[in-house]
Design a protein around this nucleic acid. Structure first.
Lengths: 151, 151
DNA sequence: TTTTTTAATTTGTATATACAAATGTTAGGT
DNA sequence: ACCTAACATTTGTATATACAAATTAAAAAA
């Protein structure tokens, strides 16, 4: 469905406005579907994102700053996200011995296990949308988004 | 900057994953910039969206359902958004005389004035990003997003 | 060594999001 | 008229977002 129809716009929209609404709306659609995948695991999207970042550390701990840097929503409150993951025993949190200002966060085996279980579902989710485009179109969409976003 | 660099990914990502992250990230970038525009007016993005919908009614009131239908984030809590707008005298709220289950929400002159003041800033914001692409690329991006999103 | 500056993280507060349950109203069936 | 189902909206609760202020520790300067 066209973006004008999705938001029930009665007047024709400028292409610049359509694009920005289309990005917002498309992100909402993908995100809503992703949250449904995570729901049975009692994880929010941002909590999942933190776990994914920690797995990427391959055994090394990550401090709060490093997690924040790799996050998509840069303004998320990493402290509170890690708090929630700690309650579920998906991560450990320790003061860094070399620099006591820093906090070392590590994913636990339980956290790794939940990610392993989620992996195929996440890939299925990604493909659910990308299957609508062929390889060439996918590369094009990716390039156009990068070009659009950067100043 | 490429999406892999934005999130400091150490491994190459599948195109399907890149697209979904790219949409999420791009939406975050545009949204953050838009919030800065709204900040001096003490409006949130969703509050602005409700005002825009009400202006589109051209003098006719809209009930909560109608507002909800036209909103981008379908799960937003319209009642509370209207509450906030009411406190700022940007809207009026009355029980519908024909059907007392319904609430008639209307934009005030003060609400219309703030939208008029915002209009050029919003257009500038939209163009800030779209100027990176030519007309053909903009149409292509719009089409690809619609194709991507729909099942 | 003491003071000041910078860095890393946490806490506070207001608002927004997500979702379920509750409330009040209308419409339909008997 | 009475009961039930459907509709429109509100309220409750937990979590997340946005942003500023506070806390604590390390590094640099005096």
């Amino acid at each position: 469905m066209k973006i004008e129809d999705e938001i029930k716009s009665t007047i024709p929209l400028d292409i610049s406005k359509k694009i920005i609404l289309n990005i917002l709306y498309t992100q909402n659609v993908t995100n809503e579907k992703f949250n449904e995948i995570l729901k049975p695991y009692d994880l929010s999207g941002e909590q999942y994102n933190v776990l994914r970042i920690l797995r990427g550390q391959k055994g090394n701990p990550a401090n709060m700053c490093a997690i924040q840097e790799r996050m998509i929503a840069k303004t998320s409150n990493t402290t509170r996200l890690v708090d929630k993951l700690l309650l579920k025993n998906f991560v450990t949190r320790n003061v860094c011995p070399d620099n006591r200002r820093k906090i070392e966060v590590m994913i636990t085996q339980k956290g790794l296990d939940v990610l392993t279980e989620l992996d195929p579902k996440v890939i299925e989710h990604e493909n659910y949308f990308s299957q609508n485009l062929n390889t060439e179109e996918l590369e094009l969409l990716n390039t156009l988004l990068e070009k659009y976003r950067n100043q």
